[in-house]
Design a protein around this nucleic acid. Sequence first.
DNA 1: GTCCATCGATACGCCAGTGTACCGAAACGC
DNA 2: GCGTTTCGGTACACTGGCGTATCGATGGAC
Lengths: 207, 207
Amino acid sequence: MSPQEAAQEPAHTPRRSKITPERAQEFYAAVLDMLRESGYEALTMEGVASRTRCGKSTLYRQWGSKPELVVAALHGTRRVLLPHIDTGTLAGDLREAARAIGAGSGRDTPLMHALSHAALQSPELLCALREALILPEIAAIEAMVRRGAERGEIPADTPAAEFVSAQLLGVMRARPLLEGKFADEAYLTRFVENAVLPALGLEASTP
Amino acid sequence: MSPQEAAQEPAHTPRRSKITPERAQEFYAAVLDMLRESGYEALTMEGVASRTRCGKSTLYRQWGSKPELVVAALHGTRRVLLPHIDTGTLAGDLREAARAIGAGSGRDTPLMHALSHAALQSPELLCALREALILPEIAAIEAMVRRGAERGEIPADTPAAEFVSAQLLGVMRARPLLEGKFADEAYLTRFVENAVLPALGLEASTP
DNA sequence: GTCCATCGATACGCCAGTGTACCGAAACGC
DNA sequence: GCGTTTCGGTACACTGGCGTATCGATGGAC
């Protein structure tokens, strides 16, 4: 309403030109934020339009429909937390992974909760969710385990190896419902130290 | 339409009388089934009415609104899988729990997925979900661990003990997204044998 | 400086679900 | 039997989101 409204917006880019990749990222970020806050069903195109200060027409011109927009948002913001990790030991890798997952838990957990049911009903959405959030993480974790086996830290056929990634992601998603709080770094670190490593036959670090 | 329609219904109870507890169970079962199939948002009062062959008015008279109906359905069908288990050893209890959870996984997992996000937004729903599906299970699991500690099978302060319930419920919910299939008995049994028990310092059973 | 493409905004028709109101019909108590 | 009560079914107004169409404004190409 008042002229100061323009001032309180950062930079206030006048956007009447073609959609730049940066602008697309803004859309994607808004979509994911709203998913986290309200869930998939409650996400509305009108809500996205108003939050991003664009017209609905732009959204429909560009992405066609709500499911496609969500899929695009997942694909377009694929950012990976774990693959860079390589400390030289399996235990070190897993501790670092616990830290990284715990740090991103406030972002990823609500997103998973928001999308998990919708994903089980829409193959495209499931695929996008897996490719954006799940497969990169479990691939990284399995790479850690494989490197550990190659270095001889654990036997190649350690039976617990199959469950490392499922445990980490599972516990991350289970804790909010069990205890009412996110699985933060401290919790996940404790978990790795006291459950994952012992199951693999690795000693907990001497304190 | 045709008179044979009455014949194809089992028993075809003519229900014009007051709602009996058995009839209420039918409502609750229908609600939970539809939640599993379609999720919380897609659950409609009209859908419940048509599936249970009652009028919407009955639903609104009896439960007031959709959230209250869902909460009532959760409370009204509280059935417990684990508390009866007491094999005499912690390892035996956990193996049995894996079997029980795996057997019920086809029912409980979709329900959790359907409700987990809605529950994080509605305190009443969260409370009902926890009381109906979560707390009984983790109480039972923690009782197993406590009994094991009292029998001296594990030290009283075993650090992995904190995570047993989160592990079991976590992987149960994680597997459908990771591998695309439910965590069945075989998977959960393998998990307990190869990850949970070793983390607790219990040997895997000699094959 | 002019023109064209695309944007942002708004209005519209459509559909689906909510919750209310009303009605006849059937069951139960007495 | 009869009255009361509750049920099942339908009609209704209301809301809200989807997707389309339209229009003025504006940025970029030339």
